[in-house]
Write a protein that binds this DNA or RNA. Structure first.
Lengths: 145, 145
DNA sequence: AGGAACTGAAACTGTTCCAATTACATAATG
DNA sequence: CATTATGTAATTGGAACAGTTTCAGTTCCT
């Protein structure tokens, strides 16, 4: 992990569903339509929506007139939850294990790891202040400015 | 970019130099010694130290008894500067370009990009509160806790 | 002067990760 | 029952990266 596009795709898909008012199965949006608005491949979208579904953010139904819809109001879906749903994180790399026996080589990696975790947490905290509804309210939205 | 180990390697190297009190050319530490404490390859270390050198954080001298040393006190080197020096960033992915002509497909990517940038900035701000000196002062250091 | 130690840079290799594609089983609609 | 769509698996091609090797240039020591 992780130069992945999962998070942007997930955020875009959720915002698109919100814009289409897909709040119930009868307003489901097919993965092909979501993919067309990125643009990307329908299978890529389904890989992401499957994860969002497991996280309880969206529902999906197979078959004719099927597709995905939101299970929560857009204001209630914050982007840190989306990031965790797709297993993403603000990856700055993984601290090397260090050398056993060397007091410096052992303790520094722990400190570096802690610093990376702190940065990761700060990014998640910032994303927690932004909801899917905010993404639609651009431009000039104070929450994403 | 960027599942890179550059940032952890850079942070480890700087902390190691600080621990060795390598503050002048006559106390230079060879890339082989730095690499041995990670552990990793000397060339990998040199690729990173070259970037740190261009950023003005360290000096390096070739030849016998050569190596790298710090140009600034450890307390004056914050980790956000280190991250920028190695061209790293808290990458959450790149927002897809969107589809022209579709008002939704065009505006959502901008909003997603803005959200990613906000998270990136928050991570950098957090790293700015941690110095190389803090990495050595572990454990229980409030700046990295 | 000559040898040893070291950086810096380039080229190459093997691995890993990812987007995209293809294919197929399953499920729901009409 | 045909159509539409999800979900999953396998495969392909490309990009990024760590590690290695090699070489030229630099500096120290004897």
């Amino acid at each position: 992990m992780s130069d992945s596009q999962k998070f942007p795709v997930a955020a875009h898909a959720l915002a698109y569903l919100a814009h289409k008012h897909a709040f119930s199965p009868d307003r489901a949006v097919a993965s092909a339509e979501l993919a067309a608005s990125m643009p990307t491949n329908p299978v890529v979208v389904r890989r992401v929506t499957a994860m969002l579904g497991k996280a309880g953010l969206i529902g999906a139904r197979a078959g004719a007139n099927g597709g995905a819809w939101l299970l929560k109001p857009p204001e209630a879906i914050t982007l840190d939850v989306v990031l965790r749903a797709v297993n993403g994180c603000a990856h700055l790399g993984v601290a090397p294990p260090g050398v056993k026996g060397c007091p410096v080589g052992e303790k520094i990696p722990d400190a570096v790891r802690a610093a990376i975790t702190a940065a990761d947490t700060a990014a998640a905290d910032r994303l927690a202040q932004i909801s899917v509804a905010d993404l639609l309210a651009s431009p000039g939205c104070p929450a994403v400015a």
